[in-house]
Design a protein around this nucleic acid. Structure first.
Length: 545
RNA sequence: GCGCCUGUAGCUCAGUGGAUAGAGCAUCAGCCUCCGGAGCUGAGGGCCGGAGGUUCGAAUCCUCUCAGGCGCGCCA
């Protein structure tokens, strides 16, 4: 729909010798009476051409030579161009959609550009919680969406395995292990609490017996830390897999970045470019040269590097891999780090327009309508695994994807688990299951859908459904261009609603074989679109429920 | 104090500078001899937090202001 109209309009603008050619925006109008698609093109040109929008619109209409696919072209409101397609065009397009070819369903937004998307990247110090899950759902859907829209995607998870946090994890398990064996080792003040630490200590005992009994952390700490965090990482992978997140292409380790001396090299590189200076025995990055409001310490006066230093190295590592676009998906509580990382990117000479941080807002976990505060340190948190036991992966993902990434989200365990009616994902999946059931029914009755005469679809609801499906590629394209996968969930709910209404008003399988075939084709189209869209969101489309 | 995010229907949220601002839930009133009732139909519900500005046009952009959340370390 969009491709054809864009071609027509481009041709018309060329006939009018309008250049440079403006970006042609195509939208589906709010009211069906305004036509199938419309463009505010003439209004956008009003300023540069210094002519009234309606006059420009008239000129454009007159310049359209080939109008065989249109039933109607109207100028409306302040200067909208509204297009209504002929039935023949709609049926022909829908026929193409039925072949489910990606070239028809997709817009090539990416043009093969390479994108690195880093998301989740939770510290391997404990199980994933609901905040990580939101990042995972958004990141996974965005990767799928961009990949399907012509980008080459690398999915990456950054493992913070070098810092104090991982060591603290090891200390916590070490202490619990010793206590288990009756050795009185004090638990670290800010150690990790929670049942899983006890479980890990018990597991360590089960596997290694008394090997470390009475041995101080200074001696056996590295071994225990390694052992524990690898198990944590394994747990995270399992949770993500169960959550239905596609595996990452790269699991990149902070520790290995250190071991390859990349931190040193990155600091040297900044030093050479003159962005570092010494003050108070510490080494500073002059991020105020760019977009930060204060300079940042890279190496502390005690000679230790800061966390920021390894971030510099990691982002240089990303840059060195020559991606066209680099996307970081962070929890919104890290938003204060954006300016300094952007500064790093600029210092290395990278075009900041090709770096994007997507912030995923906090999830307010509620129980009985009351805030359910989570803290890994205090050990009071609900894990992603717990959530999946209660709610299920599909529902959890879908709910995360019904909101913009940067909008706050309430996730009330009672609401989400109590009444299934509040789970929009079921509504969509139900439509899919229903269609499968209808088609199975038809096949049992030996009804074939060969040589379908689509022109038998003449109910207004049928034409509306076809138009809705033909708009699907535009929705995907828009979502990809704006990095907003949530648009797809809204589209799906609308399409499902149209189908459910249609289903109640019209029987698909009836006495008229030709009409039945045509309606089966209609259903098949809906199934194709729902299946395709759910697939991109990373949500399953069960045949039966 | 400074910065970022969010204020849209009772609640949770969509809304790409464009036409009469939408959906789900909740509430109320209806629909199962019929392909899946996890469904359908209808009704009520709005000063788009507030005030200015930008222009042909603002929920959308700018300034100010109010409210909530988060962040502001030689922590990680």
């Amino acid at each position: 729909m969009k491709k054809d109209l864009t071609a027509v309009l481009t041709n018309a603008l060329e006939n009018l010798r309008i250049c440079p050619l403006p970006v042609i925006e195509i939208e589906t109008p709010r009211e069906e009476s305004f036509g199938d698609v419309s463009t505010p093109l003439a209004m956008g040109l009003a300023r540069s051409l210094k002519k009234a929008p309606k006059k420009i619109a008239e000129d454009i209409v007159n310049a359209i030579r080939d109008r065989t696919i249109f039933e109607k072209i109207e100028i409306a409101g302040p200067g909208f161009l509204n297009f209504t397609f002929t039935r023949d065009y709609l049926f022909a397009s829908f026929n193409t959609l039925l072949r489910a070819e990606k070239s028809f369903l997709r817009e090539n937004v990416g043009q093969g550009r390479r994108v690195l998307i880093e998301y989740v990247s939770a510290n391997p110090t404990g199980p994933l919680h609901i905040g990580h899950a939101r990042g995972a759902a958004v990141g996974n859907a965005l990767c799928n969406l961009l990949e399907e829209s012509g980008y080459c995607i690398d999915r990456e998870y950054y493992i913070n395995d070098a810092g104090r946090q991982v060591k603290l994890l090891g200390q916590s398990v070490h202490a619990k292990y010793q206590q288990l064996l009756g050795v009185d080792v004090p638990f670290p003040d800010d150690g990790y609490k929670g049942q899983y630490i006890d479980d890990e200590a018990a597991a360590l005992h089960a596997e290694k017996g008394r090997e470390y009994q009475g041995i101080p952390f200074e001696t056996c700490g590295d071994a225990i830390t390694q052992w524990t965090y690898k198990r944590m990482l394994d747990l995270i992978r399992k949770d993500l897999s169960r959550f239905g997140i596609r595996d990452f292409d790269t699991w990149i380790s902070e520790k290995e970045i250190f071991e390859r001396d990349e931190v040193r090299q990155a600091i040297d590189a900044l030093q050479q470019k003159g962005f570092l200076y010494e003050s108070g025995h510490a080494l500073w990055f002059r991020s105020t040269d760019f977009r930060d409001d204060k300079d940042r310490v890279v190496i502390k006066s005690d000679g230790q590097h800061t966390y920021f230093a390894s971030d510099i190295a990691y982002h240089k590592n990303k840059l060195d891999r020559n991606f066209d676009i680099i996307i970081d998906i962070w929890g919104a509580d890290h938003h204060g780090y954006i300016p300094r990382i952007e500064s790093v990117m600029q210092a290395f000479g990278y075009d900041i327009a090709r770096f994007k941080v997507i912030l995923v807002q906090m999830v307010n976990l509620l129980k009985h309508g009351e805030p359910f505060q989570m803290s890994k340190r205090a050990g009071t948190f609900v894990t992603l695994s717990d959530i999946m036991d209660l709610v299920g992966p599909d529902t959890t993902k879908f709910i995360f994807l019904t909101r913009k990434a940067d909008s706050h989200l309430d996730f009330d365990l009672d609401v989400v688990t109590a009444t299934t009616a509040e789970n929009p994902v079921f509504y969509v999946q139900y439509a899919n299951a229903r269609i499968n059931s209808i088609i199975a029914n038809a096949m049992e009755k030996g009804i074939r859908a060969d040589n379908v005469d689509l022109s038998r679809l003449c109910e207004p609801a049928e034409i509306s459904l076809i138009k809705k499906m033909l708009a699907y590629p535009m929705v995907l394209g828009g979502a990809a261009r704006s990095f907003e996968p949530h648009r797809i969930t809204f589209y799906l709910q609308e399409l499902a609603a149209m189908f459910h209404t249609y289903y109640h008003n019209h029987r698909v399988i009836g006495d008229d074989p030709a009409l039945t075939s045509a309606r089966l084709a209609l259903c098949t189209g809906i199934r194709i679109v729902i299946g395709d869209a759910l697939g991109i969101l990373g949500v399953t489309a069960p045949e039966k429920m």
